[in-house]
Simulated assay, not measured.
Amino acid sequence: MLETRLDLDRIHAARRVIDPMFLDTPMYPCDALGRRLGCTVHVKLETANPVRSFKARGTELVTSLLAGQGRTDVVCASAGNLGQALGWSGRRRGLNVTVVASRRAPVAKLDRIRALGAELELVDGDFEMARERAADIARERGIRLVEDSLDVETCEGAATIGLELAGAESTFDTVLIALGGGAMATGVGYVLKSLLPGVEVICVQPVGAPAMTRSWHERRVITTESTDTIADGVAGRYPIPAVLDDLLAVADDAVLVHESSIIAGMRMLLEDTGLVIEPSAALGVAAVLEDRDRFAGRHVVTVLCGGNVDLDAYQRWVRR
């Protein structure tokens, strides 16, 4: 029995709460990509939905709970994707949503948060500064603060991806998951270790934002002074202790990859799948590029977690 905050029965029940448009996302083989990487590759596509990421799986649970409690207001900090998801799910249930984000966040993400009707407050500094401001707003207004990864609903919503992987017809031996705050990694990892314990769960993070990976290896929280990566969606500096405990229980490994590999992964996914994805979604491909021998001949699933990217920046990256 895995000792985590997550529960398999609740994860199964989550599928009845999450809007079906966010469920049963495509998973398919990509032979061209596999030939270039030297292994069999399936991609799990989490971008083909109204918020272009997996995050709504969790916000659907959170907002359903809040609406059931008669709550009317909610606030979160976001690097961009959570804010869009909370805006979408909150508007659907009549909640007033406030999102705090860094001014440095991609403009495309900020514009979509506003378009979904959320109140957007920008702060100078990085995501961790946004987290502090969101907590202040929650205290000042007496409203619910949604904390990605700390709120178990965000993890169990993401964990429904794991149910879909476990129920897939294709067999695989490795899953590569982008690692930021840890909601997707702990959620998917928990389900796979519960249902398919032989599958290796590998988490991937940029060298420029290594806090959770270092923490996993040290088995204690390691913080960093700054981040330096184009993968803004996973660029946290302060791992949450409870989330790290869950990650230690379900992940087989956590690896770091360089910016050049992330960019190469984005380019390969464009060329071989026709998909425009954000840097965080290319981390799995980057991991294979940096350690081809490890993955040679294996059957890998990589979760493409988001497609919210500034197109000008994207074009600069993939044209290098």
Results as ranks from 00 to 15, higher is better:
residue 108 A to E: 13
residue 234 V to K: 06
residue 214 R to W: 13
residue 269 L to R: 03
residue 246 D to G: 06
residue 166 A to H: 03
residue 99 V to D: 06
residue 156 E to N: 01
residue 49 N to Y: 04
residue 100 V to Q: 07
residue 152 V to I: 15
residue 99 V to M: 07
residue 36 R to D: 09
residue 165 L to C: 05
residue 296 A to C: 10
residue 66 L to Q: 10
residue 85 A to H: 06
residue 233 G to C: 09
residue 156 E to D: 02
residue 143 I to F: 11
residue 59 T to L: 13
residue 280 S to V: 09
residue 123 V to H: 09
residue 244 L to I: 08
residue 205 Q to N: 09
residue 224 T to I: 15
residue 213 T to G: 10
residue 201 V to L: 11
residue 169 E to N: 13
residue 94 G to C: 08
residue 29 P to I: 06
residue 2 L to V: 08
residue 47 T to R: 07
residue 109 K to F: 00
residue 188 V to R: 01
residue 224 T to Q: 11
residue 318 V to L: 07
residue 13 A to W: 01
residue 297 G to A: 10
residue 271 E to N: 08
residue 157 G to C: 08
residue 287 A to E: 02
residue 307 G to A: 13
residue 271 E to L: 13
residue 192 L to P: 09
residue 176 L to E: 05
residue 193 K to L: 05
residue 218 E to V: 09
residue 126 D to S: 14
residue 211 A to P: 04
residue 219 R to S: 14
residue 49 N to E: 05
residue 256 L to S: 11
residue 149 S to F: 07
residue 237 R to M: 14
residue 125 G to A: 12
residue 63 T to V: 13
residue 108 A to Q: 08
residue 112 R to F: 01
residue 80 G to F: 04
residue 48 A to H: 06
residue 247 L to Y: 00
residue 245 D to C: 03
residue 199 V to I: 13
residue 285 V to H: 06
residue 223 T to F: 03
residue 122 L to C: 11
residue 216 W to L: 14
residue 241 P to E: 04
residue 176 L to I: 11
residue 274 G to Q: 10
residue 138 A to H: 10
